[in-house]
Computed example of a mutant assay.
Amino acid sequence: MDVVNSVRTAVLDHYGVERAQVDSASVTFLGLEPIEILRIPGEDAIHYATLGGSRHPMGDPADLLADPVRGPRAELVLTLLAGAGPQAGVARTLGVLVATPSVEGVVLQADALLDLGEPLWHNAGFTAVLLGESDITEVALPEPADPVRYLSVTPITATEAAWVRVRGAQALRDAWSEAGIDVRDPARGAVNL
């Protein structure tokens, strides 16, 4: 089963772009297969989508035997406003995040808070991300494998990460909405909480 090519086709179809229109970078970690990060241009935004995190299902690291077929599979997509220019280090950060299940046994899911404790890219004011549902359709795989889900990645500040820990992910999303904050803006500050 060629999971990576199925996922690549689905994400490119979702954004209506050809493979030749997309830039990519590869990130490798010792003991893991390469992770590819696609940079997909849009009218008003740039989308960074991972490929490779869904090769294997995520599972509980405490399980004695990991199921090689069944279990949730996920990839990540980060959307930033197009006028912001390239963000040096984004590919590495997304590679680290999508490799978290293999390295640390974390299951990626909506509302998960992942804190790297360092800037997500060069000169970023964000040190953590909040995962959410994305509008990319699940990619069906042959039975009995679970489908691949794309999760949205929203960069957040240390203050916003603390807010999520205390109040929950939806409370932060509500605060962004009330303040009219565009979370795709890489130059935005923290919402006043």
Score class of each variant (00 low, 15 high):
residue 184 R to S: 06
residue 140 A to Q: 14
residue 154 T to R: 10
residue 99 A to C: 11
residue 152 S to D: 08
residue 90 V to Q: 10
residue 133 E to W: 06
residue 114 L to P: 01
residue 38 L to D: 06
residue 139 V to K: 13
residue 102 S to I: 00
residue 142 P to F: 10
residue 174 D to H: 08
residue 63 D to N: 15
residue 161 A to Q: 01
residue 122 H to N: 13
residue 42 G to A: 04
residue 106 V to T: 15
residue 62 A to C: 12
residue 18 E to V: 08
residue 1 M to W: 05
residue 22 V to E: 10
residue 92 R to I: 07
residue 11 V to E: 09
residue 120 L to W: 06
residue 132 G to F: 12
residue 35 I to G: 02
residue 122 H to W: 05
residue 89 G to V: 14
residue 133 E to Q: 07
residue 129 V to Q: 04
residue 173 R to H: 08
residue 170 Q to H: 09
residue 35 I to E: 05
residue 148 V to C: 04
residue 43 E to Q: 14
residue 60 D to A: 13
residue 147 P to R: 13
residue 180 G to Y: 00
residue 56 H to V: 08
residue 8 R to S: 04
residue 163 W to F: 06
residue 186 P to M: 12
residue 168 G to Y: 00
residue 135 D to L: 08
residue 70 R to S: 04
residue 29 F to A: 02
residue 142 P to D: 15
residue 68 P to C: 05
residue 105 G to P: 10
residue 59 G to L: 06
residue 115 D to I: 00
residue 14 H to V: 05
residue 8 R to K: 15
residue 89 G to Y: 14
residue 64 L to Y: 09
residue 153 V to S: 01
residue 94 L to R: 01
residue 50 T to Q: 08
residue 182 D to Y: 00
residue 124 A to Y: 12
residue 122 H to V: 09
residue 142 P to S: 12
residue 100 T to C: 13
residue 38 L to T: 07
residue 6 S to G: 05
